[in-house]
Design a protein around this nucleic acid. Structure first.
Lengths: 189, 189
DNA sequence: ACCTGAACACCGTTCAAGT
DNA sequence: ACCTGAACACCGTTCAAGT
């Protein structure tokens, strides 16, 4: 929300996008309701349609924002680590760790049926898997491609499970042990 | 659809449940619309509300049917295999194999936000993981629990990836090789 | 017992009209 | 340029009325 001149609040497109991302994080796509967002922002639906073509355009914008912030962020954080073994370990700790719980990521998985969400997930999955494959190649292990897919799908599945049935999944110290066992298994001869 | 007496078609609750499952398989929960189902079955919405309390009751019934048919079915199919190594291999081939593609399973993962879907997935996940843990325990390997979770989340993630970004995931002979590498990695010392 | 048809609320979308 | 308010279509839910 931006104020200008005399202090009157003017809605920017970003205000709608942020509101949409918040709604998505809690209740998925279904929670992104133009009417509800408008009420939350103290505006009318008509105001929304001045800034966006339709609801789909808002969702596109929100997904694009998520893609940049989230995916690019994680990759950048570990990209500078030289030793691939260290890098894999840091990556797993970061994406499976206890902090990773609130990420919007998983929430999005909830809407794979939606073509827009599907497209965004596809782009992100490619980027992520390519990054992981790079690590395994530099490790020089055999079956690098398969191991990378294994690591990546173990991440996706774990994250999904934590969301749907948290009780099945370790936390805290047990989680640290699990990450270590997983790394061992992925690197074993 | 059941006909009785003179051949007039009478709608049974099962007809609505089947229609709901079909809709769910294609478009997720959002596709389960009372109005659309009614049109498809050649009835009115009022007719639906004679058989079910509301839309949620229909979804409950559909999920219950899926739970029985699908989960119990797979477990029963491999339960009789004696050797745990053989059993793990058969299980992986069955749930990751090319035939597993049309299952409604993954589709459901698309709606984790919905409390009803979440509850059903939780029950199913417990059953499945318990079964896999049994296998690893009988194998007598160390870290059996962690390995089981690894196997299970690799399955969940793989299935999810196949749905969102099919191009990332092997098929046919490459898939068979992948399943073998995965099994190796899970059993390696 | 089983179904229709009309009614109402909620939400996406449009648009004339306001400032 | 930016927003309101009323309108309409779609869908969940209710209910009086029909057979």
């Amino acid at each position: 929300m931006v104020t200008r001149g005399g202090g009157s609040a003017v809605l920017q497109p970003e205000d709608w996008v942020e509101a949409a991302l918040e709604a998505m994080a809690t209740g998925g796509l279904a929670a992104v309701s133009v009417e509800r967002l408008a009420k939350g922002l103290g505006a009318t639906k008509g105001s929304f349609y001045w800034h966006f073509k339709d609801r789909a355009a808002l969702i596109d914008a929100a997904l694009a924002r998520w893609e940049e912030r989230d995916t690019a962020g994680v990759i950048a954080a570990v990209a500078s680590i030289e030793d691939p073994r260290e890098q894999l370990s840091a990556l797993l700790r970061r994406v499976l760790g206890d902090d990773a719980r609130t990420a919007i990521d998983v929430t999005l998985l909830a809407d794979v049926h939606d073509p827009q969400v599907k497209a965004a997930l596809e782009r992100v999955a490619h980027r992520r898997l390519a990054f992981v494959e790079g690590i395994f190649h530099r490790l020089g292990v055999d079956n690098a491609k398969a191991r990378a897919l294994m690591a990546f799908s173990a991440f996706v599945g774990f994250t999904q499970l934590r969301r749907t049935s948290g009780s099945l999944v370790p936390q805290g110290r047990a989680l640290q042990r699990y990450v270590r066992t997983l790394t061992d298994r992925l690197l074993a001869a």
